[in-house]
């Protein structure tokens, strides 16, 4: 019996998949994980305008948590995150259920609801800032109709600026949640619905007892994606409130940018970025883990 050796070309071919994945993987390793490591390192140094590689322990974190600005940013993120996610899901879900009622112009209405997703947060912020302009915006218009106490100049009120962010962010994302829910509604097994209505369940009961509970995974996805969006929110603040008045509507992402690029506090900036990463990871890692594990294909 002869035992021919593997041809050289075949030997290379055997490694081709790995070779092809390599550039992408190397880039991700370097530009994501390497950079995370670098930022993590810097977050334990006294870096000011330029990176300084002398470790000083957790001092930057201690300083970070003593800063009122950071406290405000975190508190804002909490308020913004909760309200943004809640409203986006409630409105998105409501619109999806309503659009599922054999609406004649469904495609057209869906297009209207979803177009904000094509627009950047900068544009969204610019447009709503103009609408909320205290002297020329919607407030003046509504007051001229006779509703004298109407107030919509939220961006200029330190107590309301965060809610302006929530409103604009919900405006931008509700359509996306609607699209997510609508496609899930449409993929519910029609036989179950038929069986339920033969059993005498009313349409309302069918929705509440059968359809919505079966969409739990979609709720999960929506919550995870929206919270990820909330934590990363940066542009909207820049365009809509500029973080103000003062720093009343600043979010962690803006805090990080401010420290890193404007105040020459790289160490603090890096520490705040690491806190953001930890927050995202706390949400994403369990989610991704369950997603990947649950649908492993052999």
């Amino acid at each position: 019996m002869t035992h021919p050796p593997l041809k050289i070309a075949d030997r290379i071919a055997r490694w081709l998949p790995q070779i092809v994945v390599a550039p992408c993987f190397a880039a991700i390793l370097f530009f994501v994980y390497g950079f995370i490591a670098w930022t993590a390192y810097i977050s334990f140094t006294k870096s000011k305008m330029l990176p300084n590689y002398n470790l000083i322990g957790t001092r930057p974190y201690e300083r970070l948590f003593q800063m009122d600005r950071w406290g405000v940013a975190q508190e804002n993120l909490f308020i913004f995150g909760i309200l943004f996610i809640a409203f986006a899901i409630v409105i998105g879900c409501l619109l999806a259920v309503l659009l599922d009622q054999k609406i004649r112009a469904e495609g057209f209405i869906r297009t209207i609801y979803l177009y904000p997703m094509a627009i950047s947060f900068i544009i969204t912020g610019t447009a709503w800032k103009w609408i909320m302009n205290p002297s020329l915006g919607l407030e003046t218009v509504v007051r001229s109709w006779g509703w004298e106490s109407f107030s919509f100049g939220w961006t200029n009120d330190a107590n309301l600026a965060v809610y302006a962010l929530v409103m604009a962010a919900v405006w931008q994302s509700a359509g996306f949640v609607m699209a997510l829910f609508l496609s899930a509604l449409r993929s519910v097994d029609q036989d179950i619905i038929k069986a339920a209505s033969l059993d005498g369940a009313s349409p309302w009961k069918i929705y509440m007892r059968i359809i919505l509970p079966s969409m739990r995974p979609v709720f999960m996805s929506a919550i995870v994606i929206l919270s990820h969006l909330a934590i990363k929110s940066f542009d909207l603040v820049v365009a809509l409130t500029g973080g103000g008045p003062g720093y009343s509507s600043t979010l962690p992402a803006n805090f990080m940018y401010e420290m890193t690029f404007r105040r020459n506090e790289i160490g603090i900036g890096a520490a705040s970025a690491m806190i953001m990463l930890a927050t995202v990871a706390a949400i994403m890692v369990p989610y991704l883990y369950s997603e990947l594990r649950g649908k492993k294909h052999v």
Binding site: Q18, V21, I28, A253, Y257, A273, L277, L288
Partner: peptide
């Protein structure tokens, strides 16, 4: 071509989608 470790590679790449970019802009600038 599911080579050994392909799933790990994918998981690592996938997480890259969700990293807040604030954590990479500083080293990227450098």
């Amino acid at each position: 071509f599911k080579f050994k470790g392909a799933n790990l590679v994918f998981a690592l790449i996938l997480f890259g989608c969700f990293v807040p970019f604030q954590v990479v802009i500083l080293p990227m600038a450098v």
